[in-house]
């Protein structure tokens, strides 16, 4: 039992990271029905910005995270303007391929300039403390990751439910044409969505850097795909779905490696994707609305 609870704790911080990345996928999909495959790589850029602001500017972890979030928010807006906006009215497959191209572009530009060698987050950025409570081990790092992820999710929920911008986002997501008729600037809302999604990914990137200490230019691929699965699991386009999906994925992975074998972890993660698509394509939280025409 103790071991099981420990496994849950292990899964929570991983899940929090997945959830943050999944939010960006789901928000972008909710607004323009695009699966932004470059999202995992934006997270990688965030991890590097965080790394450089800690190692070169000597900033603390909070400042590094904010810095990474701001940089990636701008990056997200620019990517949307340059790569996706010109294709907004073309086929979805064209946009999807562009997203994959953008993903490769970010990976290999980083690889070219920063080399394939892994970078190490300075240990001084976040001195580690362990807490042992009744045989359970939890570190201040886990607590920091879970708490800051939850805070960001609460802020996001507030923006979407309580502010005018959030209302506009929901409106665009529901019906783009009608939103335009109501005087909402769709371009502006799409930009804001990309900015928020990319900022959350950047935060996740800094957390991964903190969590595993080592970052490299291709680090975004696997967590990006896992977060995509998490978004689909919760119901793509649905914000609470992404949060729950992320935590579920994190816990599921830890339980698979804890009680079965770590060799099957990825197989199970992607098996979940296939199962969900077969059984309930709208995800756990999705309603069967039928195709909008």
């Amino acid at each position: 039992m103790l071991e099981f609870i420990q496994q849950l704790i292990n899964g929570l911080s991983l899940g929090a990271i997945y959830a943050l990345i999944a939010l960006g996928y789901t928000m972008v999909y909710g607004i323009i029905l695009l699966i932004n495959f470059a999202h995992g790589d934006i997270m990688m850029v965030g991890a590097y910005v965080g790394f450089f602001s800690i190692s070169l500017l000597g900033s603390n972890i909070i400042v590094a995270m904010v810095f990474a979030m701001v940089t990636c928010a701008l990056l997200g807006v620019v990517i949307e303007k340059v790569a996706y906006r010109p294709l907004r009215n073309s086929t979805r497959i064209a946009a999807l391929i562009t997203a994959i191209g953008m993903s490769l572009f970010l990976e290999y530009v980083t690889l070219y300039f920063l080399t394939a060698q892994q970078r190490v987050y300075p240990a001084s950025a976040f001195p580690l403390h362990k807490y042992e409570i009744a045989g359970l081990v939890i570190s201040n790092k886990d607590i920091f990751i879970i708490v800051s992820a939850v805070i960001m999710m609460i802020i996001l929920q507030y923006i979407i439910k309580r502010t005018k911008t959030g209302k506009a986002m929901r409106a665009v997501s529901l019906d783009k044409e009608a939103a335009v008729l109501m005087g909402i600037s769709v371009d502006r809302i799409v930009s804001i969505t990309f900015a928020i999604g990319s900022a959350l990914a950047a935060a996740a990137g800094v957390m991964i850097g903190l969590y595993y200490n080592a970052i490299n230019p291709l680090m975004g691929i696997i967590p990006g795909l896992k977060a995509f699965v998490a978004a689909v699991l919760g119901g793509i386009g649905l914000i609470p779905g992404a949060m729950v999906g992320g935590f579920l994925m994190g816990i599921l992975e830890t339980l698979v490696s804890g009680y079965w074998s770590s060799m099957y972890r990825d197989a199970v993660a992607f098996g979940v994707l296939i199962l969900i698509l077969l059984i309930k394509p709208t995800g756990l939280f999705g309603k069967n609305t039928g195709e909008k025409v």
Partner: peptide, 20 residues
Amino acid sequence: EEGFMNLDKEFRGTLTKIRG
């Protein structure tokens, strides 16, 4: 006796099992 794949970064699950 456990294994991992190269490029893995998450070992906590298996480590907790080994600790047991």
